[in-house]
Design a protein around this nucleic acid. Sequence first.
DNA 1: TATAATATAGTAAACGATTACTATAGATTT
DNA 2: AAATCTATAGTAATCGTTTACTATATTATA
Lengths: 335, 335
Amino acid sequence: MVTIKQVAEKANVSTATVSRVINGNYPVSEKVKNKVMKTIKELGYRPNSIARSLKCNKTYMVGMVVPDISNNYFMDIARGVESVISPLGYSLIFCSTDENTDKELRLLNALNDKRVDYVLLASSTQEDHKLQKFIDQGMNIIMIDTSLENLQTDSVVEDNYNATYKLISYVIDQGHKRIGAVNGLLSVSTAKERYNGFCKALEDHDIPLEQSYIVNGAYNRRKTYEEVKFMIQRNINKLPTVLFAANNDMAEGAMIALKEMNLKIPDDISLVSFGDINLAELIEPRLTIISQNAVLIGEKAGELMLKKVSGNSEHDITKVTIPSEIIIRNSVKSI
Amino acid sequence: MVTIKQVAEKANVSTATVSRVINGNYPVSEKVKNKVMKTIKELGYRPNSIARSLKCNKTYMVGMVVPDISNNYFMDIARGVESVISPLGYSLIFCSTDENTDKELRLLNALNDKRVDYVLLASSTQEDHKLQKFIDQGMNIIMIDTSLENLQTDSVVEDNYNATYKLISYVIDQGHKRIGAVNGLLSVSTAKERYNGFCKALEDHDIPLEQSYIVNGAYNRRKTYEEVKFMIQRNINKLPTVLFAANNDMAEGAMIALKEMNLKIPDDISLVSFGDINLAELIEPRLTIISQNAVLIGEKAGELMLKKVSGNSEHDITKVTIPSEIIIRNSVKSI
DNA sequence: TATAATATAGTAAACGATTACTATAGATTT
DNA sequence: AAATCTATAGTAATCGTTTACTATATTATA
């Protein structure tokens, strides 16, 4: 690999001069500039980012840590982020925690060692003090999707509570009284807030919360599939009339389970979901959902990051909440 | 951030000694070792990867360049890669080219500047000489999914030609004679090989190739959706009896188009695909497909990379071909 | 014309690690 | 007891940049 030194030698100038024509932050005469640029082209020289990073304390890398790399929702967020940061020369390092706190902390350490400029974290831990330690060390973190109350850092999240409240209220308006929920890990803020909105809607409409209709802590397709089957079997004599799935993955798992048990949606049981399933266009019935704009979350997070690294608004903590809307289709029966 | 120098000072040893206890590649007395380790813990010292990379010429980063970050197929490959390389301390940098040659080359340059240890490249360019330049410069590249004939480098690909040949032969055995294809960019090896297998199957069974049944150069859902609609309208008086979609994304686009035009699969038109669509469990009819094992491709690529960086088999070029099997379900009518 | 100001180039010290080389003390060999 | 070897520690160069500081030639000013 050709270095700045070789360029300098061949062009008969100092490395400082070469650096200056590359960075254009210091006057260099036209004559010398041309000579250097010609040499750079001849040798095919490209500056070594590693060396630059070391000197300038800036890597142009941002880490993105999510619970599940194969969930489209997070990939959409990633796409949003990439679209705003990549034009400014940043690249994304992806990491998947598998909802494992240890792995999450290990990954954060690794990203810290790599001196990434920023971390976008969809956390699934509740160890806020451990995360706070990274922040105190000077690591830049934006929480995405989930947030932790006591954590002194920026976040971009959805309006989980209110959106769920509205969705469940709609379901109740359709006459449903036996209402089940498929929850994610309630230690995660996203799942918790959705469940809180769910409970509040029941409470406000004087609907009893039936514990045996609640499935907890699945948050991925396969597990949800099994848990829902189990829950249905358990309640086979008095089924819930409607199920709320707390994310797209779980909605898919629930649909597969219901299909396998020959329960037709919405005739035998209704289903609503927080977030749209994959290939929604092709799947009958069309699900009534809270529509998430994952790409938008990513874009907002990317923009927030760029604003922070550019030095504006440095120390105030920003919390961006993205409102979500309900899309009514045909997976809820009026009863 | 605490540096090795601060540790050394506090522990009253030289930086060399600290480095040695960290790396364990040189004898250090128990007493000193303990003192240093205690100091490291006290200060919360962690070595700076950037500085290490600069000195050791090794970044433990691998770039993954794919045409479309939102296609599940590539994400599955990524998952496979990650699962084998992350235990050894490597992280993945993800980049999406949007099937744009310029962007692809720009990204490769950026990864080269970052001195990633390896690049896994699902290329969509045909400029093999430009890629060869990177390789000649010493960049380590493994082609995944696609390959370029003249390129002197390793690859992990599927058996596109033979699998497609078998699938189309099966379709013909079911009595089909008017056979359409939805192709990707034929400049990309994957698309080309699949189309070649398609053509050979027709030829060997004396079925004429009807040009107006061929849709070219879509390779994503939205475009395919439009192109297929257009093709169907064009041939509305004499439709093909079956369509071959050259990947999952295009199969999805085709299904949405057919559904919108009220053509039932397989009654009105049959459909087969190279690769399974998302949520196949929920979508009727179940598609007859060539099953791809994307995760396996990723794993093989990751293993190949690890083998190469470990120094074994350094200079021979390895071509891994993953065989694909046909899964017959019920999207092809017997006629 | 002497002096101050400006434009342009070079020198060398960082950034934070690793490691070839050197130094020293103690153990072993003869 | 002298010579050799071994284990352990330190010194300082190095990786490839950037940049504070210094130097010089040129131009502007008095």
